[in-house]
Design a protein around this nucleic acid. Structure first.
Lengths: 337, 337
DNA sequence: TGCATTTGCTAAATGGTTTTAGCAGGGGTT
DNA sequence: AACCCCTGCTAAAACCATTTAGCAAATGCA
C-alpha cells in the first residue's frame, strides 16, 4: 500500500513534456520561452497528481534549503526568549522558510555542535539568539551563510537586533512626568556594575543611560536608589519592605517587572495602594505584569517584533543592525493625569 | 575565497580508496569487510579535510532526514507549551535529530501548510503539540511517517503523551491530608462543564475525577465549591474575596496556579496568612508559583518530561500512549505536619 | 592440483531536482 | 539562395551520498 511519492518525472510524463520543461514551469522561471499551452498542461498534471517537490533533491542541486537555524542559549526557560522564537517563526513562515531550532544551554561544545548541524543541513541563514541581551559567543567555525545576532551582539557578526533600551529608559521617565510625578521617585534595582556595563549586558546599561538622561533633561533627581544584584521578585520585596519602614515614596521606577512584582507584595503588606499611594512603572512587560492588581504599566521588551526583524534582515539584503522600539503598555499602576 | 565543500569523493581520493569504501567506513556499517588499515586511512583523510556529510544528499538517497517536525498550535503564548518544546528539543538532540518547529495558531489552513512543509522535507516523524491538552485537529492528508500527539489526542493517531491527571488529582488531596487538613477545604475553579468533559479538555476532567475519588476514599467532602469559567488570576481574586466575606476556610484547593495567585491577592488584602490561616494547594507549577510569598505548593504539569517522552516514542519502536506522572513541587503553602 | 569460499575492495546505478548546452524548424533579411 | 535569429522544446550533466552487484585475489579444503 506504500504509494510512492510523485516525482517531477511523473508530472512531465503525464503532461507529455520533458522534466526540464516541467521544472521550469513549476518553479516559475521568468525568462522561459515555453508556450502557454505547455504551462497549462504541466500545471494541470501537477495538480492532478498532487505533486510536491522533494526538498532534499532541490537543496542538493541548488544549495538552498529554504530553512533557517535558530540557535539559542535557552529558548524557553524564560518566557521572554519564547517571544523571540515566536516572532521569528511567524516571519519565517511568511517568507516560506522553515526554522530549525537548536538549544545550546550556552555550552560551547553544544554551540559548536549546533552550528555544524545547521551548516550540514545547508541552512540559508543563522540566527544566534540570546535569552538576555549580551555579547554572545559564536563558535570559531567558518560560517558561509548570512548570520544575525538576535538580542545579542558579536564582534564577528555586526548585524544585530536589539531593543532600543536608551529610548525605552527615557520613555519610563516621561511616563512618570506625564502622570504628574516629578519627585519622591525611588529607583529600584540600580547596580553600580550595571552602569559600567560589566554586569549582565550592555543593553541594560543603555536603559540606565536613557533614564539618567531623561531625568537630567527634566531637572529631576531620584529621592533614593536601591541596588541589588539579582532582579527577582524576592529582591524587590526585601528592598521595598526596608524602604517603606523609613520612607514614603511617591513612585517606584523598577528596573524590571519581577522587581515590581516583589514591590507590590511589600506594598500590599504595608497596606499601601497602587497607584494612589505609590505609583509604579517598570520594564519588560513580563507576563506577570498583567496579573498584578492593578496591572503594571511597563515599557515592554519587543521580543516578538525583534524575532520578526531578525528574519527580515537575514532574508533581505540590508544587513544593518536594528534597534527595535520598546512599546509602552499602559495598565493601572500610574495615576491618570 | 569561496572554499568548496569537502565531499566524500575528496575524502576517498585522499585516502586512496573508493567512495564506496569511504561511505561504508564513515557511516560505520557493521557487516563490512574492509581492512583495519582502510578504516584508518579513511578516518584520517576525513579528519584532515574536515569532512562533513551533505545531509541533503544523504536524505535524498536514504529517505531519512534525521529531522522531526514539531507542529504546535501555539508554542510560546503560554509558558507551558514552551516546556514541551524544550524537552523535545533536548531529547531530539540526544538522538542526533533536528527539530523543525512550526506554528499554526490552530488555523486549519496553516495546519495543512505545516504538515505539507514537513512532509516535503522528508521528516522522520511528526509531533502534534497542543498548548492545552485536548482533541487536536489533524489535517486530512496522507501522513506516512510516525506521528505522536503531545499534550493532545487524536482518533487517527493513538500514540499520545499526556499528563497523568487522574493521579495528579489524587495527589493534591493526599497533600492536604498529609498536612493534617481534612475539612474546611474549598474547591476553587469547579465548573460543571469541566466534569462532563465538554469544556476545555478531557484531561482536566480526569484531574477532577482523581480529586473526587481521593476525597471519597478518605471520607472527606469539600466545605464548598466555587466555580468560574476562566481560570485566570482575576477570577481567583474575585471568588476568594467573596468567599472570605462570609466564611473562613482552612484550605483552598485551586484548580490551577493562576487561580491560586488571585486567591493570594485576596487573602493578603484580608490580612490572612498562608499557610497559618489558610493553606493552599494547586496545580500546574506555573512560573508564578515560585514568585508567590510563601511559594505555592503545587502538583506540576510535567511539560518538559512530556516533550522528551514524545520524542522517545517517536524514535523508539513502542508506540504506546504514555501518561507522564505529575510531580509534587513542595513550597510553603501547606503547613508542615 | 582443482574447486569453492572468503576477503577486500570498486564500478555503476540510484534518488529527484535544476541547469547548461543545444537541437529542429519556422520566419525574416539581404 | 544563403544566412541569421527566434521559438519551443529536450538530452544530459550535475549535485553528493548510499547501495547493489560483482570482480580479482587469496585462502581453505579435499
Amino acid at each position: 500500500m506504500e504509494k510512492k511519492r510523485v516525482t517531477l518525472a511523473d508530472v512531465a510524463r503525464l503532461a507529455g513534456m520533458s522534466t526540464t520543461a516541467a521544472s521550469m514551469i513549476l518553479t516559475g522561471r521568468p525568462d522561459t520561452r515555453l508556450s502557454a499551452e505547455a504551462h497549462a498542461k504541466v500545471h494541470a498534471a501537477a495538480a492532478s497528481l498532487g505533486y510536491r517537490p522533494n526538498v532534499a533533491a532541490r537543496a542538493l542541486r541548488t544549495d538552498k534549503s529554504h530553512s533557517i537555524a535558530f540557535i539559542s542559549d535557552y529558548v524557553a526557560t524564560t518566557r521572554f526568549a519564547s517571544g523571540l522564537i515566536r516572532g521569528a517563526l511567524a516571519a519565517a513562515e511568511e517568507a516560506k522558510h522553515v526554522m530549525l531550532v537548536l538549544e545550546t544551554g550556552g555550552e560551547p561544545a553544544r554551540e559548536i555542535q549546533a552550528v555544524e548541524t545547521a551548516l550540514d543541513r545547508q541552512v540559508d541563514g543563522l540566527i544566534f539568539a540570546a535569552m538576555r541581551a549580551r555579547e554572545v559567543f559564536v563558535p570559531d567555525l567558518t560560517i558561509n551563510v548570512p548570520t544575525v545576532m538576535l538580542n545579542g551582539t558579536s564582534a564577528r557578526f555586526p548585524t544585530s537586533v536589539l531593543p532600543d533600551e536608551y529610548r525605552g529608559g527615557q520613555t519610563a521617565v516621561r511616563l512618570l512626568r506625564e502622570a504628574g510625578i516629578t519627585d519622591g521617585i525611588v529607583l529600584l534595582g540600580h547596580n553600580a556594575e550595571v552602569e559600567t556595563g560589566l554586569f549582565r549586558s550592555e543593553t541594560i546599561a543603555r536603559r540606565f543611560a536613557g533614564i539618567r538622561e531623561a531625568m537630567r533633561d527634566a531637572g529631576m533627581a531620584f529621592s533614593s536608589e536601591l541596588s541589588c544584584w539579582n532582579w527577582e521578585p524576592g529582591n524587590g520585596y526585601e528592598l521595598t519592605r526596608k524602604l517603606l519602614k523609613t520612607k514614603k515614596p511617591r513612585a517606584l521606577l523598577c528596573l524590571n517587572d519581577r522587581l515590581a512584582f516583589g514591590a507590590y507584595q511589600a506594598m500590599a503588606e504595608a497596606g499601601l495602594r497602587v497607584p494612589e499611594d505609590i505609583a509604579v512603572v517598570s520594564f519588560d512587560n513580563d507576563e506577570l505584569a498583567s496579573y498584578l492588581r492593578p496591572g503594571l504599566t511597563t515599557v515592554g521588551l519587543p521580543h516578538e517584533e525583534m524575532g520578526r526583524v531578525a528574519i527580515q534582515l537575514l532574508l533581505g539584503d540590508k544587513p544593518e543592525p536594528a534597534l527595535v522600539p520598546m512599546p509602552v503598555i499602559e495598565r493601572g499602576s500610574l495615576p491618570r493625569p
